[in-house]
């Protein structure tokens, strides 16, 4: 075995979900037999519980164009797309040195970082659909 490229590209959770879906993964335990392996089904079930479950290719593209002014790295974008931060605490965890980087706007002028984080979260909220309610919340 020869590893040609250890990293031939990162995939977002959505892309993995889309790929597994196209291969015929289902949540039904019996439906999995034959078409895909049990381990693939487990990954599929896990991903269905993440914000990736209702994203689309268009919404991700839109997010990438709209967040250009924030000068995010690819790793930052990946974290945000995968987990859809909904609060400032989430954003600080997902973006490296968020406070320092968000204290300047695209022209290098000083800005209030909290305002800028709010602005960023607003974009995330607009672009990505909210996660579906969990089953136990619906029964309440």
């Amino acid at each position: 075995m020869k590893i040609e490229k250890a990293n031939a590209g990162f995939l977002t959770n959505f892309e993995v979900l889309d790929f597994l879906r196209s291969r015929g993964a289902k949540t039904d335990p019996m439906g999995c037999l034959g078409a895909v392996a049990a381990s693939e089904c487990k990954v599929y079930e896990y991903l269905l519980k993440t914000p990736a479950c209702n994203q689309t290719r268009e919404s991700i593209n839109e997010f990438v164009t709209r967040c250009e002014s924030f000068k995010l790295t690819n790793a930052d974008k990946l974290n945000v797309i995968n987990w859809r931060p909904s609060s400032a605490a989430d954003a600080y965890a997902m973006l490296e040195e968020c406070g320092k980087r968000f204290s300047k706007d695209e022209r290098g002028e000083a800005r209030d970082e909290d305002e800028r984080v709010e602005e960023f979260l607003e974009i995330v909220k607009e672009v990505f659909p909210p996660p579906p309610p969990k089953p136990e919340e619906m029964t309440e």
Binding site: M1, K2, I3, E4, K5, A6, N7, A8, G9, F10, L11, T12, N13, E15, V16, L78, N82
Partner: peptide
Amino acid sequence: MFVLSQIEHNL
């Protein structure tokens, strides 16, 4: 979380 890895193998 997920990456692609390109591999060549004599199968």
